[in-house]
C-alpha cells in the first residue's frame, strides 16, 4: 500500500532482543539464555572439527591437544561450563513454567496486579542460586583441584 510506504520502521531488532532495558530480571535471563545457547552451539560445532583431527592420526591429535593447553583455552573451557550451567538450569526452569507450574492460577485481575512473572520469581531466584553454586563448584574444580 502506498500509504504504508511512508510509515517509518521502528523495530528494535537485535537491540530489543538482547537489551534488558528497565524490564525485570526475567528479561535479562531471556537474553542470557539465548546468548549462552549460541555460545554452546558454537562450541559444539568447533568441538566436531577439533575431534575430527583424530582421523588424521594420533600425531595430529596430540598436536591439536598441545596447542590448546594454554591458560586462555582453559578459561574458554570454563566459560563453556558456565554457559552449560546457566543454560541447563534456566532451561529446566523454562520447561517447568511452560507446563504451567510455579505460575499460580488464573484469577480476576485486582489492582495492584500480581503477574505470573512475580509469582514464579522465588523459583527463579532459587534456580539462579543453583547456577551460581554450580559455577563456584566448577571454578574450584577447574582452577584449584585440577591445576
Amino acid at each position: 500500500m502506498e500509504k504504508n510506504k511512508q510509515h517509518l520502521k521502528n523495530k528494535l531488532g537485535l537491540l530489543g532482543w538482547l537489551g534488558g532495558g528497565r524490564y525485570g530480571m526475567e528479561r535479562y535471563a531471556y537474553a542470557l539464555h539465548r546468548l549462552t545457547g549460541l555460545g554452546l552451539l558454537t562450541y559444539f560445532i568447533l568441538h566436531i572439527f577439533v575431534t575430527g583431527t583424530r582421523i588424521a592420526g594420533p600425531q595430529a591429535w596430540q598436536q591439536t591437544m598441545q596447542s590448546f593447553s594454554t591458560p586462555w583455552f582453559k578459561f574458554g573451557e570454563f566459560l563453556i561450563f558456565v554457559c552449560f550451567a546457566y543454560h541447563g538450569l534456566n532451561g529446566l526452569r523454562l520447561g517447568i513454567t511452560e507446563l504451567g507450574l510455579m505460575l499460580g492460577k488464573p484469577a480476576r485481575p485486582i489492582y495492584p496486579y500480581r503477574s505470573s512473572v512475580l509469582r514464579q520469581r522465588p523459583f527463579f531466584v532459587v534456580v539462579m542460586i543453583l547456577v551460581a553454586a554450580m559455577i563456584v563448584i566448577g571454578g574450584t574444580d577447574f582452577y584449584l583441584l585440577n591445576r
Binding site: 524490564y23 525485570g24 526475567e26 511452560e98 496486579y113 503477574s115 505470573s116 512473572v117
Partner: peptide, 13 residues
C-alpha cells in the same frame, strides 16, 4: 521464552 516483559507492562493485569 518467558521474558515476562509483556505481563510486566500490561496496564490491565
Amino acid at each position: 521464552h518467558f521474558a515476562g516483559a509483556c505481563s510486566e507492562v500490561c496496564p490491565k493485569g
